[in-house]
């Protein structure tokens, strides 16, 4: 809240500018921002600060960095961090490739059901992530279709598809779940691409591959960057998919926060991991928000420089 109040003087010179339709005597605009800010401060910002505070306040009282050194030195943390980053990077790359291709087909090789596919993607975004892991279990799980078919074919009870409980299973689930998040901004960006530019490029002798690389891609690069960084953040923060995977050797930072806090009641340790996770995510999210305005208008102008 302190930061909010310190904003107030900044507005001081502004009342000279009277907005159309706003009577000069009415309450200044920033006052209206206070109630929602107060609410957010109480239930989100203040608790978040407390998490940082708790990470240096052991249950025994006083303050120490013991929790930090314990956690940062533990192999469990290192493994979780490695897995988290690996899965996040992998699913981002996967989502970008798959999402670009699928959105490209919907936008530029349209077929009768293309609009329906677009709606289906919107729907996917509203569904909870853990559903994906649950449903993948019915396909590739030990008793799912794939292994059932394998057993049926060969009579062998050896489970052919056992990747679900490995990081690869998490990766597959995250690619499935996050690809629509890449496709949505991409579809919007594709619809903004000037058809005349594509046609002119074709008339100048450019084949589809060249048009995609040199005309379409530079135009949608900001949207692609925005989608990619969003997926990166979301997959760093992903919890449901990993929880439902239920594999002991697939632990991510968020799962570690959960198990330290809820299962082991080790709050300082949970808070340390939470702080690390938040710093990573917020840094990447800022990157995402930097990409966003460029996704709007003058995107990609430097690509040809």
């Amino acid at each position: 809240m302190a930061s909010v109040l310190s904003e107030a003087p900044v507005r001081a010179p502004a009342p000279a500018v009277v907005r159309p339709g706003r009577r000069p005597r009415s309450v200044p605009g920033w006052v209206w921002a206070l109630p929602p800010l107060a609410g957010l401060g109480l239930v989100f910002l203040y608790p978040l600060v407390l998490v940082g505070w708790q990470s240096v306040s052991p249950d025994t009282g006083g303050h120490s960095l013991a929790a930090w050194s314990d956690v940062l030195g533990s192999t469990a943390f290192h493994r979780a961090l490695r897995t988290t980053v690996w899965v996040a990077a992998g699913s981002t790359v996967g989502c970008l490739l798959l999402g670009f291709y699928l959105a490209w087909v919907i936008a530029f090789v349209p077929f009768p059901g293309a609009r329906l596919a677009g709606r289906f993607i919107d729907l996917f975004v509203a569904l909870p992530s853990f559903l994906i892991t649950l449903s993948l279990a019915f396909i590739y799980g030990s008793a799912g279709i794939a292994n059932g078919a394998w057993t049926g074919l060969t009579g062998s009870h050896h489970t052919l598809f056992a990747f679900l409980t490995t990081p690869w299973g998490v990766l597959l689930a995250e690619i499935t779940y996050f690809t629509p998040f890449v496709m949505r901004p991409l579809l919007a960006a594709f619809s903004q691409v000037d058809t005349a530019q594509i046609e002119t490029a074709a008339s100048l002798g450019a084949r589809p591959g060249r048009i995609v690389r040199q005309v379409i891609l530079p135009e949608v690069l900001p949207a692609l960057a925005a989608g990619g960084s969003l997926v990166l953040v979301m997959s760093l923060n992903q919890f449901g998919i990993v929880l439902f995977t239920g594999a002991k050797d697939v632990t991510t930072l968020t799962l570690l926060v959960y198990s330290r806090a809820v299962l082991e009641s080790d709050y300082p340790a949970a808070c340390v991991i939470a702080v690390v996770n938040v710093v990573l995510s917020v840094a990447l999210h800022s990157l995402y928000r930097l990409c966003l305005p460029r996704a709007g208008k003058e995107g990609g102008n430097r690509a040809g420089a």
Partner: peptide, 10 residues
């Protein structure tokens, strides 16, 4: 940007 788990923890 903040993981939901962390919101819960906070």
């Amino acid at each position: 940007a903040v993981p939901s788990v962390v919101v819960g923890l906070a």
